[in-house]
Amino acid sequence: MKGFTSLVLGIFGTLAFSWIGLAYIPNLQIGHLDPQMEEDGSDAYPVPKSGMAERGRRVYVANGCFYCHSEQVRADYAGADIDRKWGDRRSAPRDYIFDRPALLGRLRMGPDLSNIGKRAPAEAEAAASPAANASASPAPAGSPAPATANPVTAASTPASSAAQSPAASPASAAANPAASPAQSPMATASPGASPGVTAANSPSGTPALYSTAWHYQHLYAPRSLNIDSNMPAYRFLFDKRHIGGEPAADALKLRGNDAPTEGYEIIPNYDAKCLVAYLMSLDQSHPLKEVKSMAAPPSPPAPGKAPQ
């Protein structure tokens, strides 16, 4: 029996050692962070998400989205995340202080989502020109060559979306296809979420990349937007309804095999709306003092336009 006590003490001690080192001390270091704020309390980042977005996080967790999608951007020396325009800067602990659970993810069978909300087009553009956008939209094709050849890609932004980073708004109003030279290289390296779009689909009818309509369609029929996608379809997040009078405003515009039978429409249910609200709220682009921002240099301001 003499060895028993020292054995138990040793067993306890070694685990306590690792617990203190990997759970307790980090908690002292980064376990009580506050949002970053200006001196006068404005411009707080991050902020807790809205009710729908929080519920959307529940839906995200319940359906295991984090098993394929990560939500962390690595620094430029550690991976190609920033080159892929998944973020302007690496993620920092402060980005996640209101996340419960913090869905960092550890596999990427799907692209990183930390800034998927930021990469959405501005609302006005998405609403105004869902059809016209498709031609300007994700020409970042699977192979680099056609993408560089496409000058219309990621056309310079109109004044109203001055706040968007250039790579984030491929769905520009087709009115001003003056591509600035700095943006084509970005187009090549863009997220490539849907390389097959312009080829496979006709320009009309495809929602703007990462807009809410795009997300709904992507959840319902991923391969209608990108034939190379490996994502399962989440049709149970949608309802199939008889069209009464007029089609609903948020009914999905589907074609081919995905479209419902005549007289029916597909609308997202509340879980789908919350999930998309959550996705649209994912935005880590706000600069943090402790992290270097790797934003690509802004193109020289053309007269009347100066993207941020």
Partner: peptide, 27 residues
């Protein structure tokens, strides 16, 4: 002896008195 301690520690630090942010992933 190790299993209940790690299980309890995880349950406490993740669900009962959750740690903040990224520490959840660490725990």
């Amino acid at each position: 002896l190790w299993f209940p301690w790690i299980y309890l520690a995880a349950q406490v630090m993740l669900f009962i008195a959750p740690v903040q942010g990224v520490l959840q992933a660490a725990v």
